[in-house]
């Protein structure tokens, strides 16, 4: 019996269970989104026209690329190329920062237009638009928190790969962090059309 292989198998089941709980956590917000969209289709249409589709698309590309980077990091590690793996992890973190910077500019622009919760401008709009922006901030905000947590986790992984505590023989932590990061990507894959595209 190989203890590290057992631990790897257990860790994989554990992280997939965790991913399921994350899906359901966001699911509560998806539930609200679908009910409110159903009740206020016109206001949601108007709301999504306010969002910047170019920035949304840019962020989608950034996250997909970061997902590729973390996959390649694990791939390189499996082939014993630790140095290359570390570079890919670093690239993933860079993408994550890029995503946050774009998001920051997007939010700031909305704030300047008075489109933030409890703002006079937003409250003067139809109630459905208030709900649209409420959900927009909640869902992209919660996603953003996940990106920030991801940056933290991946930074630890970067250090561990460089220090050699994550090795080709013992990749579990990196693999599981990668799975988490892919989840962050998948959630954005759904948020993007729901807020920016469907009008």
């Amino acid at each position: 019996m190989n203890a590290s292989e057992d631990a790897h198998a257990a860790g994989r089941l554990g992280i997939w269970l965790f991913i399921s709980t994350e899906i359901i956590l966001f699911g509560g917000l998806f539930l609200l989104y679908s009910m409110y969209r159903l009740k206020n289709p016109a206001d949601f249409h108007a709301g999504s026209l306010e969002l910047n589709r170019v920035l949304g698309t840019l962020n989608t590309v950034i996250l997909i690329t970061s997902s590729l980077c973390v996959a390649l990091a694990i791939d390189s590690l499996g082939k014993g190329r630790t140095r290359k793996s570390a570079w890919f992890v670093a690239a993933t973190i860079a993408c994550a920062f890029g995503f946050l910077i774009v998001k920051f500019f997007e939010w700031t622009a909305k704030f300047h237009h008075g489109l933030y919760p409890n703002a006079k401008v937003l409250l003067s709009l139809p109630k459905g638009e208030n709900l649209f922006f409420g959900l927009y901030y909640l869902m992209t905000g919660l996603h953003g928190v996940h990106v920030i947590v991801g940056i933290g986790v991946l930074s630890v992984m970067l250090v561990r790969v460089l220090r050699g505590t994550i090795t080709p023989q013992n990749p579990t932590y990196l693999v599981n962090s990668g799975l988490y990061w892919h989840l962050v990507d998948i959630i954005w894959i759904f948020l993007f059309p729901l807020f920016y595209l469907i009008t």
Binding site: E5, I64, S67, L68, D75, L77
Partner: peptide, 24 residues
Amino acid sequence: SREMPDARPHGPTTRSYVAVWGAL
């Protein structure tokens, strides 16, 4: 539970990762 860790190359190849990225 007695199985190989999957970082060993029995999953997709590097090229297929890039192909998937392209598709995305």
